[in-house]
């Protein structure tokens, strides 16, 4: 269990990997090539980052013909959320998050 959580947080501790997850949220089911061109990264870099994300179970894949499609898999993040946040003070945290969002405005990178 500890290993799994370690892999999740290590995978998330990198801005490029978080950008990949953001882009898979915007556009699920992308190939490696599509991700590389959208994010202006080399295929090799994307491939290495995806391997880390897959090992952490933050990215899931399906094969379609010769293509491998990548998806954001939010389940490990949901489990972390359930462990530390959901079980206590949820209403108050929701109110704070809402307030923070209103004060800071839209995230900006959400819809490109």
């Amino acid at each position: 269990m500890a290993d799994e959580m370690d892999r999740v947080f290590k995978a998330l501790a990198d801005a490029s990997r978080r950008a990949l997850l953001d882009d898979l949220f915007r556009e699920p089911g992308q190939t490696l090539g599509a991700l590389a061109s959208r994010l202006d990264m080399t295929r090799q870099a994307v491939s290495q980052h995806l391997a880390v994300l897959e090992a952490a179970n933050l990215v899931s894949t399906v094969k379609r013909g010769r293509e491998k499609l990548h998806y954001l898999n939010p389940i490990p993040i949901h489990e972390a959320h359930g462990r530390w946040i959901a079980k206590f003070e949820r209403p108050r945290l929701d109110a704070l998050a809402e307030l923070k969002q209103r004060l800071e405005g839209p995230q900006g990178d959400r819809d490109g």
């Binding site: 699920p28 089911g29 899931s60 894949t61 499609l69 998806y71 898999n73 389940i75």
Partner: peptide, 12 residues
């Protein structure tokens, strides 16, 4: 096969 909208994986 249609391209799936979501692919969620959990290890139990």
């Amino acid at each position: 096969m249609d391209k799936p909208s979501y692919v969620y994986v959990t290890y139990i």
